[in-house]
Amino acid sequence: MAKVLSLEVVTPEKVVLKEETTSIVVPATEGYLGVLPNHAPLITGLQPGVILYRQGEERHALCISNGFMEVANNVATILVDTAEKPEEIDVQRAQAAKERAEQRLHERYPGIDVHRAELALNKALARIRAAEYNKHS
């Protein structure tokens, strides 16, 4: 059997990515999860974070928000609300969002939505990490 796993990243607005890969790492709800070709059928939830995938020696990153992934027959389909390639990320905006969220979590005024702030922080961190990943590789 071929040692490839095709990766499809789909958002409601468009198909972001459709590539042949050799391995994928995704931020599942229970922690990072690696998927190799010939993986057993799997359905998992995803949290905001960075997807890493390899094409031979090449490595790529993609920033995603909430969603889930289905793996079957060597096809990994990832359905998410939003997905951004590193070159599309506005690092400064992400940095500002991160600081805002951190401040909110730090001060803990009564009435703030802690869950929402945490989510915002996670999203901002994911963006920053994805953007930096691209720089190093």
């Binding site: 599942a28 709800t29 229970e30 999860l33 057993a40 059928p41 799997l42 359905i43 998992t44 939830g45 889930f68 079957a72």
Partner: peptide, 10 residues
């Protein structure tokens, strides 16, 4: 299918 986490949570 393997579910990660359980089907209800997914």
């Amino acid at each position: 299918y393997l579910y990660e986490p359980a089907p209800q949570e997914v």
